[in-house]
Design a protein around this nucleic acid. Sequence first.
DNA 1: AGATGTTTTGCAACCGGTTGCAAAAAGATA
DNA 2: TATCTTTTTGCAACCGGTTGCAAAACATCT
Lengths: 332, 332
Amino acid sequence: MAVTLKEVAERAGVSRSAVSRTFTDGASVSDKMRRKVEKAARELGYSPNALASSLTTGRTKLIGLVSNNFHNPIFLEVFDLFTRGLQDRGLRPLLVNLTDEVDPENSVRMLRQYSVDGVVVASSTLPPGFAKAFRDAGVPVVHSFGRSSSSPQVHVVGIDNVECGRMAARELVTRGYDKVAFLGGPEAATSTQDRHAGFMSEMEQHPHIGVNCSFADAYSFDAGRREMLRLLQSKRADAYFCGDDVLSIGVLSAILDSGLNVPEDIGIIGLNDMEMARWENIDLTTIHQPIRQIVSSSIELMVATLNEPDRYPEARIFPCSVVERGTLRPVA
Amino acid sequence: MAVTLKEVAERAGVSRSAVSRTFTDGASVSDKMRRKVEKAARELGYSPNALASSLTTGRTKLIGLVSNNFHNPIFLEVFDLFTRGLQDRGLRPLLVNLTDEVDPENSVRMLRQYSVDGVVVASSTLPPGFAKAFRDAGVPVVHSFGRSSSSPQVHVVGIDNVECGRMAARELVTRGYDKVAFLGGPEAATSTQDRHAGFMSEMEQHPHIGVNCSFADAYSFDAGRREMLRLLQSKRADAYFCGDDVLSIGVLSAILDSGLNVPEDIGIIGLNDMEMARWENIDLTTIHQPIRQIVSSSIELMVATLNEPDRYPEARIFPCSVVERGTLRPVA
DNA sequence: AGATGTTTTGCAACCGGTTGCAAAAAGATA
DNA sequence: TATCTTTTTGCAACCGGTTGCAAAACATCT
């Protein structure tokens, strides 16, 4: 079916090694030989079988790209950036969808069967133990958007979610809201937990301010909207910190539908600073998360780790900052 | 590094073939042998190398998933559905991002180097020739969301975009709009061209109605918004058929920002029926595209083609229908 | 027990490449 | 031209599996 190295060798009248060498950088081949081989290869339409060569070289250039975030549009950009960044470095992303999969074992086994050179776990919801399972299996791993830790067991690239929670809380406090609330993503998600923890820890400094918490069941527009419609039925706060912009936008839509106004009746602060947050009719005050930097740093770290597998684990944490727009009332 | 079949064979005191056979369905192995081998394999933590075996079996279970639609959130769902559907069948998606890549040759070469069993081109914008390049290279291919044709050269699964254009036009005509417009995605996208063609062909039946056309430079919220802001400066129509819901939603936001109302001042009809279209504060009248069916049918067709590579090319076209909500004025 | 039929097993060649090593070719030096 | 280096080339073994084939083991029947 496909043209093999042997056929090229025969056509060019040279040994198989010679052909192999002309297709391997840094191998010793004379110009004459190279020309002969390339001619034959061209005539036959030969291109080397990456999988066969991986057998001896031990490198497949395959990178497992593992995620369970398939509802937050931010992740479409994340996938875009990852796939392009990896491709630019000659690496190939093998996509693994972890939706409703809790146990890392299956993925670990599968990715090892395909001898991936490394794994990028791109998820803000998976626990650190997930990425660690890959490391324990001897596969280089980078956890992007993962939980930061002062003593990481695996490479982590992302933001300090706890600090973001505090930041949001401070912002609400400064504006003088007296009943605030946290509306997070899935409660099991590490990012939700951390943002929640940070938010609460800051609010503890202000015991006179009422605090409520609730959780949407996904990081998605609809989940945010549904949760807010529920909340509006009963108790309601002055201002909400939404664990993500998609939640915020869903929440915003729920509030407007109920005939209430933002920021007059209810204040909203989100997290991520997605493109839509900038639209005039949304104009969401939010915390900017530097997605591009996180992705490109993750890729660099991955590449570095491929060259130096025993590299000491590190956490790369990027700072976030509040982008003030129109969904919180002005500071008094 | 990884445990090999040979080591398992030695540990179990059997031949390599025996080990290979216990890990191959339908091979002849006695129960006693199987138990011995499985025990050794378990103790060593062995799992077979999929790439090595592909060398002899000729099957990698790798499927190239090729796309250039990384801005339309609908495609996040598409990727979700594809990855899960493929995984459920034991196939592995190798993701290829084609953004700013016009020539199929690179992708074809790359995917052949990785000996993918098949390729799914998931794109509403690539021309049929793109998918054909894979077929010509002897790789089974299914073009999802591709241009339908009565004599397809490759398998195509999707909708009839021309008919959708007509459908939208009829809808606007019925409502008695007298200046209508088409606001499409990138002009080079086949889906844009077809929706445009259908729209125009229907409008030709109604020469008294004014028709305008323009094109956003991507299928994204922002591109739709930008294009509409531009249009509002000058000429403006009574009603717009937007080539996609993301465009519609961007367009809607631009209209509202300009102090105009929908559907009173301007009518909008979209295409896709994405989740957000249902929100009360958006409430978009649109044409429903059956995404899940398209994806699952694509996967079925892919699997069928893997088993029968010379299968005669077919086009699977799913019907669309108008979902009436609140962005067009009622029929008089 | 012996003849016959059916499974199960191991041997060895193969899949499409790579690579250490030694022989051959080319280049440099005297 | 003979000798010594350096570069280029081919041989053969190997990467981690699969598989056709024939021998070995087991089961069945007289």
